[in-house]
Design a protein around this nucleic acid. Sequence first.
DNA 1: ACTAATACACGA
DNA 2: TCGTGTATTAGT
Length: 337
Amino acid sequence: MDETRVRDRAPLTVIVAPSHVSPPRLSPADLLPDGDAAFHPLSAVNGRLTPPGLEPASYATLTPLLPLPPISTVSDKFAYHAGGTFTVIQQQQSYASLSPAPYNEPLSPQSAYSRRSASPNSFERRSPTPPLPSPGLDLNAALLAREEQAQQQSQNDTEEINTKELAQRISGELKRYSIPQAIFAQRVLCRSQGTLSDLLRNPKPWSKLKSGRETFRRMWKWLQEPEFQRMSALRLADAPNQQTLKGDNVNNMQPQVYPREYQGGPPVPQGPMYPPGPPPWETPAYEPAGDVTCFGPDPAERQLQTQGGYGFGYSAFPEEAAFGFHRSPAAYPASYF
DNA sequence: ACTAATACACGA
DNA sequence: TCGTGTATTAGT
């Protein structure tokens, strides 16, 4: 029963699941499910579409806080989201300055994570990517990005983390976006609120950590994701057996009503804007402007680049898909999660 | 290294 | 005072 409620709360499900698209060029219109069998408005689907190689169970099983699910599980999760994500490239600049913004100065990701790490932050990492000179496919950039990602991936497992700074960074981001510890701990770390609180306040030095390193790695990994991806991760549907934590308003929140973001997209309930008021985000329009480039050999691992200040992630799981509208931090009320 | 329980803090 | 979110801590 709780389950249904939880599932219902994801109205922001414009999911684009290109299944056969090999041509890397897509226009926004191409993303619309209407009249295109290649795109499935998954929000209309009830059952989960299990992406190959992904354990749905482990994917969403967050609570009974298990004995530390293998990091690989979480990695898969993130990787998947990372892959199936549309990333805004055109307005990278503003994004870069928007996201981990004020908290970057004293402790850049680089400093939080030791040396060899390239640029841990997704934004910074992607920023260098040419802002789509002419909206076209940039396979090289794509491949490059993937490589970097892969490289970084492997590095992440061996790199030392400055837990102190990471903790501060995370704390800052949680504050910044009004993300409750309980939510972050549960969705991202698969840990309890109390644990998170303790880790953030009294982070043990990396050298003294044993299995606890995994938790910090997850924090770090989350930090690497683009903003909308992080948000998406935080909004992952709860597992059926998910227990409601004290103070966790997720399971109790009413389905939000979103505007119809994309013309021709899956049925999105009409209603008041969410959050209320004029869009605090950069772009005035709701439709993604500009061309969209899609690349990636695996349909489940595509990255779309679009100009116009929009990006959105998609998932094979309808309830886990999320728009990547870049909202100013203040636009993410606690109820968002 | 964590969880669960609960005390505590705080805005509405 | 209630609803929420965070800090503490006994117990695994």
